[in-house]
C-alpha cells in the first residue's frame, strides 16, 4: 500500500449518449477519512462510485486506488482491487433468492456452498455488529423491514473486512429515527474497522454526521470541498442553496 491518498480521481469524464454526467471530476480521499459527496439527483454521484468500482468505465481521466490505476482492469487484477471495497447500495440490493446468512457471507464464499455452520456463525457475528441477532439468519430479505434490510446489507458490506466502504444514499427511504440509527452504525463501523469511507447522499443530517469532509458535485464537477463544519458556512451560493433546500438560487 502506498503512503499517499487512498483514492484519487483526476479529470474523470463520463457521457451517456449526448448527456455529460461527469465533466472532469477531481477528488482525493485520504486513508481512514470519511468523505461525503452531496448533490442533486442525477448529478452523477452514483456514476462516480460505479466508475471507482469498475462497474462503469469512464470515457477519460484516471482513478487511482492505493496509487494503482484501476480504469480498464480485468480478470484477477480487477478482482484483487475489488476485494478492497465494500458497498452499501441505495435499495440494499440484497439477493432475494437467498436467506439472510447467505447474503451476509456472499462476499466470503462468492456464492459457493461452504461449511454452513461456520458461515452461519460468521453471518451472526456480522449481524451483531449492526445490531441484529441470529434469529433472522434463515429469513429471506422480503421478510425484513426496510431498516433491517439496510442493516443486513451493511453486515454484508463489512463481512469481507474491506479497506474502503461506499455508502450509496444510506438513509434514503428510512424514517428519521431509523436513519439516525444507520448513521450511528456507519460512524461506529468506520471508526472500529478503520476503513476509508465514501458516502453519497442528499441527506444533510447524514452527511454532517457520517463525514469528516464534504464535497459537492454539480453539473458533473466538484464545485466545493470542505470540512463538515463548514457545510452551512461554505461561502458558495450553490452549496448554500442545496443545504438549505431553497427553491430560489443559482441551482435550477
Amino acid at each position: 500500500m502506498s503512503g499517499g491518498p487512498k483514492i484519487v480521481l483526476s479529470g474523470v469524464t463520463k457521457r451517456f449518449g449526448e448527456r455529460v454526467i461527469l465533466d472532469g471530476v477531481d477528488l482525493s480521499i485520504e486513508p481512514g477519512e470519511s468523505l461525503a459527496i452531496i448533490g442533486q439527483s442525477g448529478s452523477g454521484k452514483s456514476v462516480t462510485l460505479k466508475c471507482i468500482l469498475g462497474l462503469i468505465r469512464p470515457d477519460a481521466g484516471s482513478i487511482l486506488v492505493d496509487g494503482e490505476s484501476v480504469v480498464g482492469l480485468h480478470g484477477k487484477d480487477q478482482e484483487r482491487v475489488r476485494a478492497k471495497f465494500g458497498m452499501l447500495f441505495q435499495g440494499s440490493a440484497l439477493f432475494d433468492s437467498l436467506p439472510v446468512w447467505r447474503n451476509v457471507t456472499f462476499g466470503l464464499t462468492q456464492g459457493r456452498s461452504r461449511d454452513t455452520a461456520q458461515m452461519k456463525k460468521v453471518a451472526e457475528e456480522n449481524l451483531e455488529r449492526v445490531g441484529l441477532d441470529g434469529k433472522i439468519l434463515n429469513l429471506r430479505p422480503n421478510e425484513l423491514s426496510g431498516g433491517m434490510q439496510k442493516r443486513v446489507a451493511l453486515a454484508r458490506a463489512i463481512a469481507p473486512r474491506p479497506e474502503i466502504i461506499f455508502f450509496d444514499e444510506p438513509t434514503t427511504g428510512l424514517d428519521p429515527i431509523r436513519a439516525d440509527v444507520i448513521n450511528n452504525l456507519i460512524v461506529s463501523l468506520v471508526e472500529d474497522l478503520g476503513v476509508t469511507a465514501l458516502t453519497i447522499t442528499h441527506d444533510m443530517a447524514s452527511a454532517r454526521k457520517i463525514a469528516h469532509r464534504v464535497a459537492m458535485l454539480y453539473q458533473g464537477r466538484i464545485i466545493w470541498e470542505g470540512s463538515r463544519d463548514r457545510l452551512y458556512d461554505s461561502d458558495n451560493p450553490y452549496v448554500d442553496q442545496f443545504v438549505r433546500g431553497d427553491a430560489d438560487g443559482p441551482i435550477r
Binding site: 460505479k50 468500482l53 462497474l55 478482482e79 475489488r82 476485494a83 471495497f85 465494500g86 458497498m87 447500495f89 441505495q90 435499495g91 440490493a93 440484497l94 439477493f95 432475494d96 456472499f106 462476499g107 462468492q110 456464492g111 454484508r156 469481507p160
Partner: peptide, 21 residues
Amino acid sequence: TMRVTEQMDAMTTLRTDPYRY
C-alpha cells in the same frame, strides 16, 4: 429485476461474476 434493483452490481462488487453465477 436483479438488474434494476442493483443486485447484479452488488454481486460484481462481491467479486462474483454474474455470467458464471
